[in-house]
Design a protein around this nucleic acid. Structure first.
Lengths: 202, 202
DNA sequence: GTCTATACTGCGATAGAC
DNA sequence: GTCTATCGCAGTATAGAC
């Protein structure tokens, strides 16, 4: 174990949980500190601002997303690539990042003018762009805008599908935190989401 | 012209605009009052609380939604009904309610524990239920949960598609407020959204 | 690295005059 | 129906002791 800073990591984890429950704005550093059994000031020792906590979580995800985008850009456009792109993205969302992206989707309004969130949305837009890349569109066959708008929408929707699939718990803030979340129903949901998503752009 | 209370209606309109721009929480009554060139106290003369303003907007939409749901429940399940249900819903969103539903979608976190928003989401869930009604599911052919999860997800996605289509402006808070929004690109987007939505559940 | 204590800001909401 | 003025509270953030 490295545990160079135990507290910093604990803050990140609890903050992600809290952001997901309350949204970014309503998640107060006071409550964050209470859950961690430290004080607000202690939090400020590790992060300069509230936004920095979010940024720290976002960067981690952004790095993984960049890997995926780099891979995707290097592939020849087509149904096979899109299918594999979605599979890899779904895999990426299975861990901690699923909670982040879920919260990102649920709190667009609250995050609208935060740099960290905008950066992430920019990357997701690029991912959607790769998924909307029709082959047909690349070949210049579509002068008509109608089908392009539809393809763009479909790409966006299939990301929403995966993000929905990444929704872990429904509610239950009172339940014990160390319960296993990997119920069979959840895995089923993830698989159904991937299937629907692939169906949308393949 | 009726104009029984001009101000009350003005508050509703500007509030909807402001909620859409900032989200519910960050939309302050102070800024609302400034835009209307009245004071916060004047706003409180017309609405007891901030939440009441939202509730007032929500009720109007809820009433229209109820009409649609009543119609939908009375129809025989099937692709034709679903298609028409979507067409009517898209039509409903073309007016003011499109902005409301757009804001509802963008600010889930901020609205999570507001009664008005929950009521609306309950109705949207029922609408999604009608759209997920497979015929096959109604006939009890699906004991297996996998396909049901997919059908549920598809229904939810096709509402998202229409809500996306209802997104009026992209940004432009500085532009003049009385500009015409009915660009041809916007109509195209609406039509594409409806087509994608119908494709998803028919 | 964590604490106590506090500064400062902006929020929703209220009181009472006009 | 609108105003001025203010209350009480919760938020982020800071200062400085331990």
């Amino acid at each position: 174990m490295v545990r160079r800073s135990d507290t910093r990591e604990a803050i990140r984890a609890v903050a992600l949980e809290l952001f997901g429950e309350r949204g970014y704005e309503r998640a107060s550093l006071r409550e964050l500190a209470v859950r961690l059994r430290i004080t607000k000031a202690a939090v400020y020792h590790h992060f300069a601002t509230k936004e920095d906590i979010l940024a720290s979580l976002a960067e981690e995800f952004a790095a993984r997303l960049d890997e995926l985008l780099t891979w995707g850009r290097a592939q020849p456009p087509g149904p096979g690539t899109r299918r594999e792109l979605l599979r890899r993205y779904a895999e990426l969302l299975a861990g901690r990042h699923g909670r982040l992206v879920r919260f990102l989707e649920d709190d667009r309004a609250g995050l609208r003018d935060l740099a960290a969130a905008r950066d992430l949305h920019r990357r997701l837009d690029e991912l959607a762009g790769l998924l909307a890349d029709d082959g047909a569109a690349a070949a210049g066959l579509l002068a008509d805008g109608g089908r392009t708008a539809a393809a763009t929408l479909r790409a966006r929707l299939c990301l929403v599908a995966l993000h929905d699939g990444a929704a872990a718990r429904v509610a239950g803030p009172a339940a014990g935190p160390s319960r296993s979340w990997s119920t069979s129903g959840e895995v089923e949901l993830r698989e159904a989401a991937l299937a629907v998503a692939q169906d949308l752009v393949c």
